[in-house]
């Protein structure tokens, strides 16, 4: 039995220690935000935060999540209010098919946490998730916009 916290709630799953976190979330705990795209850490559709760090959950064994904190797209909104990155994604009409977007948003949130004012180069380096619909231009714009909106108001 593996126990860990998902979006602030204690959860447990009776699974093999090597079962990837992605499949524990999706098939055992019915947390469907993280998506399967490749299974080999190439596409980032499965991106979640493990103790605040973005990870590709298809390549993280359940055992590595034991006792840890997992945050998925479902847990991003606070008290019913969307995260500024989600709002920027709507303002700039980023998603097309939407399949990659949970992962893109989780990667962007992690980037902005580390680097509240990323340059284009920083975005290039951090945002390596695949989008087959090619929403990249809008992802870039939306990250810059979210960075602006998250700046503490000037005193």
């Amino acid at each position: 039995m593996i126990e860990f916290t998902v979006n602030g709630r204690k959860r447990s799953a009776d699974v093999e220690p090597e079962m990837p976190l992605l499949w524990v979330l999706r098939d055992v705990l019915d947390v469907k935000g993280p998506k399967y795209g490749c299974g080999i850490a190439q596409c980032g559709a499965c991106t979640v935060h493990l103790n605040g760090e973005p990870v590709r959950s298809c390549s993280v064994p359940a055992s590595a999540a034991a006792g840890q904190n997992v945050l998925t797209i479902e847990g991003l909104a606070q008290r019913g209010r969307m995260h500024p990155v989600q709002k920027a994604w709507i303002d700039h009409q980023v998603p097309q098919c939407g399949y990659c977007q949970s992962g893109q948003i989780m990667a962007a949130v992690a980037l902005l946490k580390k680097n509240p004012n990323p340059s284009d180069r920083d975005i290039d380096a951090a945002m390596t998730n695949l989008c087959r619909c090619g929403t990249y231009a809008r992802i870039r714009t939306a990250i810059h916009a979210a960075a602006q909106s998250m700046k503490p108001a000037k005193a």
């Binding site: 469907k32 479902e74 989600q86 709507i90 980023v94 939407g98 977007q101």
Partner: peptide, 21 residues
Amino acid sequence: ANRLDIPDKVTGKPLFGIDVQ
């Protein structure tokens, strides 16, 4: 016009075939 499907797509709603449960 803003697309009608986008709010659900930025909040991780189970919209896709792979999400059917």
